[in-house]
């Protein structure tokens, strides 16, 4: 496929288009503070039945990604045919690739871990890629403080309905543009949710494969109680290290994903501020990072689950 010149033309065109839009994003909204914030921006917060539902832009993007996935797979697998064509073929290739990946990492346990790892991969892949679709960055909601005016140089499409709660507090340097679409992986909540599911399910599979013996990975007093003090203490220490490493896995998963995608967004923004054509190579890089991060998250999940299910193997963390 990579030898096909047509494919290269499309890829290069996509990169150029994306870079162009990213370039013009900050220029047109100079009056607005560039939105670099760890926390996702709140788009609106409808009051329903006495509760306030705060909806962030990353949440919206996650839903868009989910919708795209569901639509793709719904139409792709609606009328499955023995001789595949078009969308069915592409989706089958993807699933087959993921099955192969799971089998290469987890061996005979592959199909057990397949669903979670593949879901993580597909969700992250789609959500990372749609965040790179040009044109969404500059469209969003600006929350104005009392008596504040919308800055010049931006087009106001309409007033936000009064059910939206403004987040902006007076005294800040200016209104914040909250884009409608922000990469879901730049929301620590999503990254943490994925990490929690991955690590918790790893423990579940560990118990399933080894039963209560799985606990000896963390609490190993066998040799200490037999009187072997030196090695017993080492076992206890190793158990503590294992326990800490499980917790650190959550942190590592979360911040690896968040850091890579968030940094990518910022790099594109800063490069665009510095010089017009500078984001071009970085846009290609970010496409690469978007795929790689989805892949890494899925493969690490598979690897950890395999290690936890395997009988008494070294549980060293692989990065």
């Amino acid at each position: 496929m990579l030898k096909n010149p047509k494919v290269w033309v499309i890829v290069i065109a996509a990169i150029v288009m994306g870079a162009l839009v990213k370039i013009f994003t900050p220029l047109s909204i100079e009056a607005v503070r560039a939105s670099i914030s760890f926390a996702p921006e709140q788009l609106f917060a409808p009051h329903i039945g006495g509760y306030v539902f705060s909806i962030s832009n990353t949440m919206c993007t996650t839903w868009i990604a989910m919708l795209i996935i569901v639509i793709l797979f719904f139409f792709g697998t609606r009328k499955m045919q023995l001789i595949p064509g078009g969308l069915q073929n592409v989706l089958e290739m993807l699933i087959e690739y993921l099955v192969g990946l799971a089998e290469s990492v987890a061996g005979h346990r592959a199909m057990k871990f397949f669903a979670i790892a593949s879901t993580i991969f597909i969700l992250l892949l789609v959500s990372n890629l749609i965040a790179l679709i040009p044109g969404f960055g500059p469209i969003g909601v600006i929350h104005l403080a009392e008596g504040e005016h919308a800055p010049q140089g931006i087009t106001i499409i309409g007033d936000a309905p009064s059910i939206f709660e403004t987040k902006h507090e007076p005294g800040q340097e200016g209104p914040i543009l909250a884009p409608f679409v922000r990469a879901p992986a730049t929301d620590l909540n999503l990254a943490l949710a994925l990490a929690l599911i991955s690590v918790v399910m790893t423990q579940v599979y560990g118990f399933q494969a080894q039963g209560a013996r799985y606990l000896t990975r963390f609490f190993s007093f066998g040799r200490l109680l037999k009187g072997n003090i030196a090695f017993g203490l080492i076992d206890v220490f190793v158990g503590i290290v294992e326990l800490i490493s499980e917790i650190m896995k959550i942190v590592a998963f979360t911040f690896r994903l968040f850091g890579n995608i968030f940094a990518g967004e910022i790099v594109l923004l800063i490069m665009a501020y510095l010089f017009l054509v500078l984001p071009f190579p970085f846009y290609g890089l970010e496409l690469f990072v978007a795929v790689i991060q989805a892949f890494v998250f899925a493969v690490l999940t598979l690897a950890f689950m395999t290690i936890a299910s395997a009988e008494h193997e070294a549980g060293a963390e692989h990065h």
């Binding site: 839903w63 989910m66 797979f73 699933i95 669903a115 969700l123 949710a193 599911i197």
Partner: peptide, 14 residues
């Protein structure tokens, strides 16, 4: 969200 998409993918894809 993640659990929902997991279930949906299981039904629609896997």
């Amino acid at each position: 969200n993640v659990i929902l998409i997991l279930v949906l993918l299981r039904v629609l894809a896997y």
